[in-house]
Amino acid sequence: MSGQATAVVMSLAAALLFAVSAALQQRAAGDALRSAPVAQRRRRRWLPVAAVFGRLVRDRRWLLGWMVNLAGFGLHAVALRFGSITVVQALLLAQLMFAQLLLRRRPVWQDWLGTVVVAAGLVLLLLVRRTAPADPQRVHVPLAVLVVAAGIVGLLGLARIVPRRRGWLRGAVVGGAAGMCFSLTAVFVVLAGADLARRGILELATDWVIVGLAASTVAGTVLVQDAFAAGPLPIVLTAMSIADPVSSTAIDLLVFDPQRLGLLSLSAYAGVGVVLTIGVVLLVSSPTRKAEARVPVAATR
């Protein structure tokens, strides 16, 4: 199996596991926050889910979701070793398609049309971005990390002022922040893999990349649980699935593998973006997801 094929298979398998994990953990986090006393939740206005983390780690659904997510992370790391971060992170959009099978309501024609359009966009992306850089450039990575981190902090500040009756909106905003955090995790995984192949595990153990990987992984875990507790699965998963590949693609093309993109290349990427956007809009605006969004969520303010 070629490197590109391996990356595709591993990415899709990881997307399936991430969708299953999200479904399990979203239900556990939502139930835990809804059952917590209001006063307890209000003491954690920035991250309300932090007030119930002790309850979550004792929830069998949440623990099962965490183990499934860990398995997905392993497959994700393998995919990033063989494919470009642009392709791998975009393929995680398949979570939206797999999530359809986990909804409490039967998908309608718009769900399936959106699925087909997203799949078409991913195929086009595979044709446009075929290979990963053999030695990803890292000179501007710290600046890129700071920019993305600033975006995450900005989204969290926005989430803090969202009215409590708009739980779905808060879930989407925090989900976007989690998606950006996951893009940083992917960046650090790529750098760690390159270091490991080039220098060995002893050199990797002393590299700042390990610290970044640990920080982004922990932050992403906390943010995604908070998003799950605030909003319904389709809304949160959609926000994460959009923010992650957008951030990852920007870092890949501007930092990892800087290149002059001609008019043809820019048009190709723009075309892929349009197709994926249409597919995502179809999925987000479907009656199935609107019905899921009306599921009551806990007040966070």
Rank of each mutant, 00 (worst) to 15 (best):
S265C: 00
Q95F: 02
I278A: 09
V128D: 06
V190Y: 12
L33H: 04
V153P: 03
T300L: 08
D252V: 05
G176M: 10
P287Q: 11
P232T: 08
L253W: 14
A120M: 10
F53I: 07
M240E: 09
G72P: 06
A291C: 09
L92N: 05
A51P: 06
G83C: 12
R61G: 01
A194C: 03
D257A: 15
R160K: 15
V162Q: 10
S247K: 00
M1L: 13
L102R: 13
S265P: 03
L264F: 07
T185V: 14
G72L: 07
R60L: 13
T221K: 05
G279V: 04
A119I: 10
L124W: 04
R105L: 14
S216G: 08
A197T: 11
V20Y: 12
R301V: 13
D257M: 00
R45Y: 14
Q26E: 14
A215E: 04
V281F: 09
A119G: 09
L113K: 10
T6D: 01
G3I: 07
V173R: 00
V141Q: 09
A77E: 03
P245K: 06
V52K: 07
A197R: 15
V280R: 13
V272Q: 07
M97N: 10
F53D: 04
G83I: 08
P245C: 06
S84Q: 03
L282H: 13
L63F: 11
L237K: 10
I152D: 03
A178L: 10
V281W: 05
L64E: 05
A177L: 08
V174Y: 00
A29Y: 01
V38L: 09
A22N: 06
F256H: 15
A270W: 01
L96E: 01
Q89C: 13
A291P: 10
A29G: 02
M1Y: 14
P296V: 08
D207L: 02
L63T: 05
V236S: 03
G262W: 12
L126A: 09
G193V: 03
A215K: 03
V20R: 11
A14R: 03
A230T: 00
V211G: 13
A51V: 04
A215F: 10
I251T: 13
P136I: 14
V87A: 11
A32K: 13
L12H: 04
V218K: 01
W46F: 05
C181P: 00
G176F: 07
P296H: 13
F18K: 07
V209Y: 05
P136T: 13
A120K: 03
A298T: 04
R81N: 15
A32D: 07
M240T: 15
F53G: 08
V255G: 10
